[in-house]
Design a protein around this nucleic acid. Structure first.
Lengths: 228, 228
DNA sequence: TGTCTTACTAGCCGTTTGGATAGGTGTCAA
DNA sequence: TTGACACCTATCCAAACGGCTAGTAAGACA
């Protein structure tokens, strides 16, 4: 295993002072190198540290006090810890702005991330090289940055009186995970020490929240959103 | 929009002759830059073209005749076209080796890719920086490269007498997609102009192939595998 | 203190599903 | 021609699911 945090290896310094200092948190080397390369070559910024876990990201921000933290919410098993991290960074290091760089585009997650202090949300597959630097610069200056599609997505979500944008409770996510593993309500009930009726109830709520008609659709949406 | 194909912009040439020439096909700029950066800086290879679509990848291979094509199967809406592309490249340009660099790790897709001519299969989230260069070199020299986890995955799959490694038919995928949209068997039957019994039949087959107990699990596995 | 809201729990009843089995067609290659 | 394969249809019955209604516990707020 690589170590979780690695310090700046000093690739091509250009402007000596007042450079935007960035920490990148992503488990994927290729992405880290790509971001570093784009920001350092084209945008004249400095990637001062990289992290591949939530803890490491927190440590890195603590140690380097960067202007911007670029984070992929998908660092561990579930997205919830990434969201938690946004909260924590905002709380403990308010000077560091957070730019989420996500793999998936899910209304629910975008809204959660913004609610918990993220200053921007870009989708990896959609960003162009120059947009990354611009996005970092913009969040650094206090703007909120939403990538192509992200803005309209949440506008749409907020427009609809209710439904899709609501967050799932931990219990609901547990139930959905179990459903995705092919367990029956009875089995889920046993696993979670609740009655079968309760399992059904949770599923009904999630289908409303996710605007899904059946459990299979719930699982599909939750999987696509990276929740399970 | 960027153009689909862009020629080598000549970043840092080092060894003048006999360098491994690579074409990268991935819709994600960050990944492309990351791969280019890793291969050119650390492995002394040349990325001679980038592509962001299947057609462009084919064109680029035709035009540049690279030693290795690095491809993300997830270039378009579904993975099937990426698999088709492996077949086509192997067929028309046998001198170009194919290294699949995937987001997801699915037994079925790994096996399909190898069956259709891919020479290696690495998982983006698992590769370390040096492994990428080594992998490219290895496939170029005729080896088959399977990333961490990939090998054991398919070994496991081949070990089990039957089941998981079988490929889904187009009809089966259509049915699964519909299930993932929350349709009932009856609705699916109407949509596909077949009887409800047939829908159930297809689902029974897919659950055997995917080794899933219920439709929700089928959808989960198929979604996670990028099939729907 | 009373009222609201939210998460969680539960039972009832009709519909949908899954599993096992047993067939039918058309196509393609050995 | 004979398989092999994808695709289609059907029936039976137990099990699972979805929709509805309703109660409890905890926290927020006026």
């Amino acid at each position: 295993m690589d170590s979780d945090v690695r310090a700046d290896v000093g690739l091509g310094r250009r402007s000596p002072t007042a450079r935007t200092r960035v920490v990148v948190a992503d488990r994927n080397v290729i992405t880290r190198v790509g971001i570093r390369s784009i920001l350092e070559r084209n945008a004249g910024m400095a990637v001062v540290a990289e992290a591949t876990s939530y803890e490491a990201a927190l440590d890195a921000v603590d140690e380097h006090g960067p202007d911007v933290l670029i984070i992929d919410l998908d660092l561990g098993d579930d997205t919830t810890r990434g969201l938690k991290l946004c909260e924590e960074i905002t709380d403990r290091f308010p000077a560091t702005k957070i730019l989420v760089l996500a793999n998936t585009l899910s209304e629910m997650i975008v809204i959660e991330a913004l609610r918990r202090g993220a200053n921007g949300y870009l989708c990896k597959d959609d960003v162009k090289a120059d947009e990354l630097g611009k996005g970092v610069r913009a969040v650094q200056e206090g703007d909120t940055v939403l990538g192509r599609g992200v803005g309209s997505l949440i506008a749409h979500g907020l427009g609809s009186t209710r439904g899709s944008a609501e967050r799932l409770t931990t219990r609901e996510i547990e139930v959905i995970k179990a459903v995705g593993q092919g367990l029956s309500n009875k089995q889920i009930a046993q696993e979670l020490f609740i009655s079968e009726s309760t399992v059904k109830f949770h599923l009904q709520n999630t289908s409303k929240k996710l605007n899904a008609k059946r459990r299979a659709e719930i699982v599909h949406k939750a999987t696509a959103a990276g929740l399970i």
